[in-house]
Design a protein around this nucleic acid. Sequence first.
DNA 1: CTTCTGACTGAAA
DNA 2: GTTTCAGCCAGAA
Length: 119
Amino acid sequence: MSVSLKPSEKNKDFFLSVYEVVRLIPKGRVTSYGAIANYIGAKNGARMVGWAMNNSHSQEKYVPAHRVVNRIGMLSGKGHFQNPTAMQEALEEEGHFIKKDQIMNFEEVFWDPSKELEL
DNA sequence: CTTCTGACTGAAA
DNA sequence: GTTTCAGCCAGAA
């Protein structure tokens, strides 16, 4: 295990918030790192969301990271899954159609927590 | 301490 | 229209 570092206590809340929002993503919907970051308050912390996803493996509870993609709907994080195809298969199983690591009709399935999920 | 990298994004060329 | 650059925060070497 190379990456065995956990988030600092200070950022722990940020990480947990990310996981919480990700779990709230309805089935058949997806969101972007920036949308989550914006909802939490770190609108410029999209990369931190990605970092949180990397730590999601350390979480006891499962985090549907496959529902989180970049702003264009590309499976940028597929390489971090158990298998490079796990993310695509998981999405297809939820009714999505992926083409070349990119979600078709992404705008239709996009789920913005700051809009769909009220404060 | 300095430097680089990254599951990103927005703007500029 | 595509491609490149810079900004952003946190962690690793």
